[in-house]
Design a protein around this nucleic acid. Structure first.
Length: 876
RNA sequence: GGGCGCUUAGCUCAGUUGGUUCAGAGCAUUUGGUUUACACCCAAAGGGUCGGGGGUUCGAAUCCCUCAGCGCCCACCA
């Protein structure tokens, strides 16, 4: 059976993925092994795979595959998120294109459309994850709107309500006029925008005088119910107790006093619009002012907007300014930049608005979650720098607005009754609600039809914060075997952008509902950016199509490309050339195996010393690399781990081991060598498998074809073995000698073999001479005690000097300049060492080994200088 | 306004508690090489006064101060 010349990823990817699934390698059930669990950050159910997902999930797959090989009961739970606002927005848009408006649909009709959409596109992204090789236990796939998942959410709501942590509050919230819902503070992104600061004059009621206020939002004057000045501000003392007239609408409003007003800013007069600004709201409550809400839910003005009614807030801003200009009450206009809140989802400019919403008290929930991360270290954030960000947010946490004026999501389990919805009960079902209502209201004849469920749904994150518990049904059945076995999970891999949205809240939920942290490590990836450092996004069109990349380079190559430069927490400037590098690496591995497979084996040949030595060197290099790789994994430095394996394969295995053991053209390899090489190859396949699952599995099966078959997926990760530093040092020396000979050849345009002599200092031998002979293409290596002063080539490796007795023309002028330069350097270096050594403070303070080292450096330098000097003499 | 982080080769980044031979890697570059696994390749080479300045120390890319530039998070200044 011959191996194809080219590795064609598409030809093997589906084959092996199917094979893995058929053999249930990714399936996990509780047993007596230690579990290693990862819950996926559930992508939006209607989402499409992008670069961020690819990186994120490749990382998780690398972790879970290695854990599986290390003998853990590895369990990676996949799933999707209903993504309330995002999905609803998409459905609304899609219906709009068909000419259907949300407002014309009933809730049930709308939800039917939403489910259709979900059934059509939901799970597409999970299929895409399979393409990149993700080894999830697909039988465990969860969706946040699944019945048990929803039940968990409702149970938790009721529980928190009964504990007094959930309350209904009439408060200022963030209103998204496009999605027409409230948002949590975290969903508001503050962006710097340039606008204008308008100075508007208000007449003082009953006096021939006016005052001037400054505002960035002139349309809100229609909602003004006071003017506020600082009581200490001498400029306005004569106005205390008077009223002012709001331009346009002519309303007379009081001039109130409060220290809140900054005397320095603007004119020192502040217009107060309690219904449209959080600070004004506090002032309004403090001074018992009227609240005038001038906006409709869609951001247009309502009847308080007078002649502007029905127009959009930004249109009104323009026309009201123009109108005031006409009335002469616009004093001036200045350029002004300020941070404007925008919706994370729709990008719409947020309106602060007072309304009645459900809130969750966070302070007490946060307490154990702060301790876990900052003191007990039960949950580690990687990289550590996020600890500060976390602390800052957690210590200043505010109550969480959990209600959304949407339909797609978990409906709030609150049932109203009474004339104006003035009573309510909280229950998991209408029937249960009726029972409670009858008890509470004392009306035994109450009918179920009198109950009206709250129209709102819960924030998406109110279900995802339970994810690590609810995927094991740990809310509904707190003592089930699964949750007891898998929870707490080990690693969570996600982006830092959802540290507050999701990670922090999961930690809080973990302590609140299971009295235990949800995961012990949080690996926060960087954000994938393009070459110009811009975040990849659909709008910018700078995101390569994920599946397109896989088709072009192969899944293994893309995974390698992503891993090569993705240190935790560092943003990754994605460059397609990294995938190219990954593809080249795939090709390299493939060809290495093709080479081995092509060799004829002759059982009668003895193993050459060079092969024996080379394999010995490789084994030690392997063990050292394994130690390094394991250490990198321990520190979650996956790109470093990959680079270590990359170099082990490319350099140590291919460039050295295979080049040394490769039989001459037409000859055969001995049986011992080929067998040992194959064993080494299998070991490196294991190391590369978590990174490149497909090609490693393909070759693994080819190697194994004559013996019993077993998947690499469930093979064992190599165990660290001792390696000898002296062997590695000799190996390194041989590489340098070979390199030097090659360099010498190139410098002198030599092609033929030639004899090489070694001039020694402290040793009369070098190791692995057979190997050197072979790779450097030399006739012989001789040792000599005497300095050889013939003309010829000379080079040094460490303190050893090598001489090549060959009649070649040497440009002695050039050579002596080179030697002199080197001498200068060495002398300067020696000088600085001698300085140190003659400094009594250094000798007294520095540890012995450092001093010894310095002395050795000095001696070595002297030897080198001596060498160079005699070389210089021989030139003249 | 508060907090955090970054600045090391053309690019992307390592550099662990200051000390293992005048700073490392990958990519890119230059030069030479193709009948004998791979040009998606082999071999060799070049390339950095570690952002600027000052300080601590026997010794600083590493610690401290300061200046400059960049990035992120948080915050209600109209």
């Amino acid at each position: 059976m011959s191996i194809p010349t080219k590795f064609v990823p598409s030809a093997v990817e589906d084959k092996w993925y199917k094979y893995w699934l058929e053999n249930d390698f990714f399936k996990s059930t509780p047993d007596n092994r230690k579990p290693y669990t990862i819950v996926i950050p559930p992508p939006n159910v209607t989402g499409v795979l992008h670069m961020g997902h690819m990186m994120n999930n490749s990382l998780q797959d690398i972790l879970i595959r290695r854990a599986r090989m290390r003998g853990f009961n590895a369990c990676w739970v996949p799933g999707t998120d209903h993504a309330s606002i995002a999905t609803e927005a998409k459905v609304v848009e899609k219906l709009k294109k068909k000419g259907i408006l949300k407002k014309d649909l009933s809730r049930d009709e709308f939800l039917k459309h939403a489910w259709e959409w979900t059934d059509e596109y939901g799970g597409v992204i999970l299929e895409q994850l399979k393409k990149i090789g993700c080894s999830c236990d697909w039988d465990r796939t969860k969706f946040t709107l699944d019945p048990e998942m929803s039940k968990s959410v409702i149970t938790v709501f009721i529980d928190l309500y009964n504990k007094g942590l959930i309350y209904k509050g009439y408060r200022m919230v963030n209103w998204d006029p496009q999605a027409q819902t409230t948002l949590s503070d975290e969903e508001v992104i503050h962006k710097e925008k340039t606008g204008s600061l308008f100075y508007i004059s208000y007449k003082v009621d009953g006096y021939d005088e006016s005052l001037v206020i400054a505002t960035t939002r002139p349309e809100t004057i229609l909602g003004d119910t006071a003017i506020c000045v600082n009581p200490k501000d001498d400029r306005y003392k004569h106005l205390h107790g008077k009223n002012a007239i709001v331009p346009i609408c002519g309303r007379s409003i009081p001039i109130i006093l409060d220290e809140y007003v900054d005397v320095e800013f603007g004119t020192g007069c502040l217009k107060v619009t309690p219904a449209h600004d959080p600070n004004d709201k506090s002032l309004g409550e403090k001074h018992k002012l009227d609240f005038i809400d001038i906006l409709n839910p869609d951001g247009s003005l309502n009847s308080f907007g007078l002649q502007y009614e029905g127009q959009d807030r930004f249109a009104v801003r323009k026309s009201i300014v123009k109108d005031m200009e006409g009335l002469g009450c616009l004093v001036k206009k200045e350029n002004h930049t300020s941070k404007v809140g925008t919706s994370e989802r729709t990008n719409a400019i947020i309106e602060p608005r007072v309304s009645e919403q459900w809130f969750l008290k966070m302070k007490n929930l946060a307490k154990p979650a702060i301790g876990a991360v900052l003191e007990a270290n039960e949950v580690q954030l990687i990289p550590k720098k996020f600890k500060n960000t976390y602390r800052n947010w957690m210590e200043n946490i505010t109550d969480w607005n959990i209600s959304r004026q949407l339909w797609w999501g978990h409906r709030i389990p609150v049932y109203y009754y009474g004339k104006n919805n003035d009573h309510y009960v909280v229950a998991e079902s209408k029937e249960k609600a009726l029972e409670l209502a009858i008890i509470k209201f004392g009306n035994p004849n109450m009918l179920i039809s009198e109950l009206r469920q709250d129209a709102d749904v819960l924030d998406t994150w109110f279900s995802s914060w339970l994810w690590p518990i609810s995927v094991f049904d740990g809310i509904n059945k707190p003592n089930n075997e699964e949750v007891n076995y898998y929870y707490p999970t080990q690693d969570l891999v996600t982006g830092p952008d959802i540290l507050f949205f999701w990670v922090a809240r999961m930690i809080m939920a973990g302590y609140a509902f299971r009295d235990k942290f949800p995961f012990s490590k949080v690996y926060l990836t960087g954000i994938v950016r393009d070459q110009k450092g811009r975040k990849m996004s659909k709008q910018l069109g700078n995101s390569p199509e994920a599946l397109g990349l896989i088709n072009e380079y192969g899944a293994d190559a893309v995974r390698v490309g992503l891993m090569l430069s993705s240190a935790a927490g560092n943003d990754l400037l994605f460059d397609e050339s990294l995938c190219k590098q990954g593809k080249n690496f795939t090709n390299k591995i493939w060809n290495a195996y093709r080479l081995i497979d092509s060799w004829n084996v002759d059982s009668k040949i003895d193993q050459p010393i060079s092969s024996k030595d080379a394999i010995l060197c490789f084994e030690h290099a392997f063990n050292k690399a394994l130690e390094t790789v394991d250490d990198h994994f321990e520190k979650y430095r996956m790109s470093d781990a990959l680079m270590t394996v990359y170099k082990l394969i490319w350099d140590d295995f291919c460039s050295w081991l295979l080049e040394i053991t490769k039989p001459d053209y037409g000859s055969s390899i001995d049986e011992t060598s080929i067998n040992q090489i194959k064993i080494q190859f299998q070991k490196i396949l294991k190391l590369i498998h978590p990174f490149m699952p497909f090609i490693s599995e393909e070759i693994w099966h080819i190697i194994k074809s004559r013996s019993k078959k077993e998947s690499l997926v469930i093979s064992s990760w190599p165990v660290q073995k001792k390696y000898s530093n002296s062997v590695l040092k000799n190996y390194d020396t041989l590489k340098q000698i070979v390199g030097s000979v090659r360099h010498f050849r190139k410098e002198n345009s030599l092609k033929q073999k030639f004899p090489l002599s070694l001039f020694y200092y402290k040793t009369n031998s070098i190791k692995f001479t057979e190997v050197i002979l072979r790779l450097a293409q030399l006739d012989k290596i001789e040792f000599s005690n005497k300095k050889i002063k013939e003309k010829g080539g000379v080079f040094r490796v460490g303190v050893n000097e090598f001489f090549i007795p060959l009649e070649i023309k040497i440009d002695s002028k050039k050579e002596s300049i080179k030697i002199n330069d080197e001498l200068k350097h060495l002398e300067k270096f020696l000088g600085s060492i001698m300085n140190k050594l003659s400094n009594s403070r250094f000798v007294e303070n520095a540890p012995n080994d450092v001093i010894e080292l310095e002395m050795k450096k000095a001696n070595d330098s002297r030897e080198k200088i001596e060498n160079l000097q005699s070389r210089l003499e021989s030139l003249n």
